[in-house]
Design a protein around this nucleic acid. Structure first.
Length: 422
RNA sequence: GGAGGGAUGGCCGAGUGGAUUAAGGCGGUUGUCUUGAAAACAACUGUGGGGGAAACCUCACCGGGGGUUCGAAUCCCUCUCCCUCCGCCA
């Protein structure tokens, strides 16, 4: 959520931001409702002030004469107040709805553009392996080795589900352990989180009210399945004031992620690139406002570090306005090269949300003892998404005979699987 | 799932319709005293909204929401969370 004071003072900046994002959020409606809200507040507060004063007097002196007439008078004032408060509530509800639908303002470096074609590649790291044979896509490698069972996944749960077998399952588990260990070494505190959370968690993170149709929801208990660990992590410090010394504060968490993914049928259907359920290790940080750019760079470096350790060639891209997440001010994608599918796969997306989520979460810190609390900045990034990392590994480490070599970095986590073969 | 009991400020804890400020304590900040510290003493003490150049004024907040009343921490309704006991359970 944006600061209404900022919106009021700089409507032209909001207008420009909406342009960059290609967004149709209702700025004019917000400005009008804000004006109404303040008018109503002043009227009702003047009346409340009078009622408080007179009511105290009624309690103080018990003279019979004035008492009845004053009570009658205040009864009328009370009715006016009730009427104004009702109007005020309506205006505030509408204002809040519009504010909740207003996306974050992109940072100045964010390129404009409406889709992924306008993202900018900043660097490409590592060398793409030369194959002496035609590299297979992971769905062929996985099926041939018997480590990915697509048919039974569909039998159990429908399209876009799969089962991992034996070394496939171990490989994923090894990756999770490896990534958590790496991040822990680099300053992140591990958290094990609820995978089902209350609605407010999604509002705080900026996924509701706008993206309800992408979230699985159990109506009976009114509980929502996490789409990413970012959602519960954003809420860890909801309604808290933390000390400046605790910042920056880094978290890492493994969670499954559940997404409805109402995308066009036929797109990304092959393999395990896009499913309704996938695993992810997340990086997350809270920081002081002045440090968040530095923290963002560290988190991008930490995502890159995983690719490097795993020996995966990758590139880093800056997202354009139209591709930017609702809550984000600036986002870098890390894309690993997948020689079998012949494409760059987004394995990580690292964002600085500024104070946008913190304002929704009411997550603050006290800069100095006795100083007023300020909103923290929040940052999130995948570190990394598991299925796509798995894809990149299988495709990059495949051999001519169909077997897959286990990367050195994972040997400690799967000591009996130097080589995955059928 | 059933029965009962709770939720008050940073913390503990009093408070069954009205008195300048939610009593008192702890903690914290500052000051006096001291070579320094402790102790003692004194003052101060939360969050958010609105107005204002500022000083300041004002409204709201006693788990959340709604209601009764001239006036609610206090009475009523409702929700959430926590605790105790019973049942069920990987």
């Amino acid at each position: 959520m944006l600061d209404i004071n900022f919106i009021r003072k700089h409507p032209e900046k909001i207008r420009a931001a909406l342009e960059i994002r290609d967004s149709e959020a209702d700025l004019e409606g917000i400005l009008a409702l804000d004006r109404q809200r303040r008018d109503l507040l002043q009227q009702t507060e003047t009346l409340k002030s009078e009622r408080n004063r007179v009511s105290k007097e009624i309690g103080r002196h018990h003279d019979k004469l004035n008492r009845e007439s004053r009570i009658t008078e205040m009864r009328a004032v009370g009715e006016q107040i009730a009427d104004l408060d009702k109007q005020l509530r309506t205006v505030e509800t509408s204002l809040r709805t519009l504010l909740m639908e207003m996306p974050n303002i992109p940072e100045s470096e964010t390129p404009s553009g409406s889709n992924e074609k306008h993202n900018v590649t900043l660097r490409t790291v590592g060398t793409q392996r030369e194959f002496e044979f035609t590299p297979k896509p992971h769905w062929e490698i996985g099926s041939n080795l018997g480590i990915i069972d697509f048919e039974r996944g569909v039998k159990l749960s429908g399209s876009r589900f799969y089962v991992l077998n034996n070394a496939g399952a171990r490989l994923q588990r090894a990756l999770i352990s490896f990534m958590l260990a790496q991040h822990t070494q680099r300053g992140y505190a591990e958290r094990y989180l609820p995978f089902m959370v209350k609605e407010i968690n999604f509002e705080t993170a900026g996924q509701l009210p706008k993206f309800a149709d992408n979230i699985y929801h159990d109506a009976e208990d009114d509980i929502w399945f996490v789409t990413t660990a970012e959602v519960p992590l954003t809420n860890l410090h909801r309604d808290e004031i933390i000390t400046a010394e605790e910042l920056p504060c880094y978290y890492t968490a493994y969670t499954p992620c559940f997404r409805r993914e109402k995308i066009a049928a036929g797109k990304d259907v092959r393999g395990i690139k896009r499913g309704h359920q996938f695993d992810k290790v997340e990086m997350y940080a809270l920081s002081k406002p002045e440090e968040s750019s530095k923290v963002l760079n560290k988190m991008v470096a930490d995502a890159e570090h995983i690719c490097t350790e795993l020996g995966l060639p990758y590139r880093v891209r800056r997202l354009c306005g139209g591709d930017l997440g609702f809550s984000s001010r600036i986002t870098y994608d890390v894309e690993a090269w997948a020689p079998g599918c012949n494409e760059w796969l987004e394995v990580s997306s690292v964002s600085n949300c500024g104070d946008f989520q913190a304002r929704r979460a009411n997550a603050r810190f006290r800069p100095r003892k006795g100083a007023k609390p300020e909103f923290v900045h929040t940052l999130n990034g995948s570190g990394l998404g598991l299925p796509r990392t798995l894809i990149a590994l299988l495709e990059n480490y495949q051999q001519a005979d169909g077997s897959v070599v286990t990367p050195d970095a994972l040997r400690a986590w799967m000591p009996d699987d130097d080589l995955i073969e059928s």
